[in-house]
Design a protein around this nucleic acid. Sequence first.
DNA 1: CTTTGCATGTAAACCGTTACATGATTTT
DNA 2: AAAATCATGTAACGGTTTACATGCAAAG
Lengths: 196, 196
Amino acid sequence: MGFVGPIQAAGDPLKLRPSSYLVLGMVRLGARSGYAIKKLADTSTRVFFPISLAQVYPELARLQSGGFLVRTDDAHGRRNRSFYALTESGERALVAWLQSERIAPARSRDESLLRLFLADALPQEDEVAYVRRMRDRARDSQEWMRNAVFPAARALEAGGAHGPRTVARFGADLFEFVADWMDRYADELERRGKDT
Amino acid sequence: MGFVGPIQAAGDPLKLRPSSYLVLGMVRLGARSGYAIKKLADTSTRVFFPISLAQVYPELARLQSGGFLVRTDDAHGRRNRSFYALTESGERALVAWLQSERIAPARSRDESLLRLFLADALPQEDEVAYVRRMRDRARDSQEWMRNAVFPAARALEAGGAHGPRTVARFGADLFEFVADWMDRYADELERRGKDT
DNA sequence: CTTTGCATGTAAACCGTTACATGATTTT
DNA sequence: AAAATCATGTAACGGTTTACATGCAAAG
């Protein structure tokens, strides 16, 4: 078991982006390796903030070189495994970000809503079917929240973190709202179609 | 005089992405120049599918070279202005996309929810204040939907397009739901804090 | 003994944003 | 006359995803 301290080059700024804070936060929640961070993210933040392994590993290296994380190496056959922990500097950076006044606007790119926006180019029956598919998709997401995300969040609560459960509840409630909205709208569309 | 090859070689496919369909759809709704497309998008699809001018202009050129749009040039001083219209091929491509079975999952990146997810690192009073700021932000978005997006959508309805109004209604209702949820959650958090 | 899961990384492609550059027209 | 808005584009940068490359360990 080797110990690797922070490699700090004096003078370089090392800008932290939202994904950096995601990584810091996941480490804080107990995910100590890149793989563990990815796995935890996939059952918690995935829906509103996805991240890929090709982002996680370089980000961990960056954060370690900036002194926000410390790495512990563990030889494992021919291959090396690394475990990370928050430094005081990392904790401070995370809290400072959480306390920042400015709330960044959500960046979403929802192709399905774009399709609904342009659905006039479709025969009405096709539009009704499409809206029902959107409803079903929202119900699926709601189920995923309830059956996978929420239980995972409960497990984290044992360690004192209630944020994950809050967000899981919010997600489930939101998808339920969307599903109900789409269900009502599909019916409304269908009634309108029968009048003509 | 050098040889100038075909703008679109016979074998290359010209892949259409969601932003391509956004552009096609905006032209279909009556926005005939790049600038007009951008302006219309900013008061309609912006919240769930933003687009920049640096995407619109090259995309228009691409779609025209692929035969999905036809361009009409209009000399205007030293500068040229271009107006676009859908071709039959463009209309077909748009409808085919709208009819595709598979609904792509929404790609959102919401920093504010990530902050809520990690809010345990914050003193409770700060978290309550943060949730109330999220609530206010959602109310602002709801107002924007009601006061800017919805009226613009009503104007489009005169031309027979009801998709824009539907999506504007959905957006306003969704932001209202979020605002109410955050309001309730902030109160819940505050009560919980007073018990300790 | 083969598939699945654990585990770490790099390279290239893709897509989108910000900044830059230019010019015409309308409004104040 | 200046400022704002209409209008069209390009260049550079940055962040994310997909594909690639490798190897260990457990379970079927």
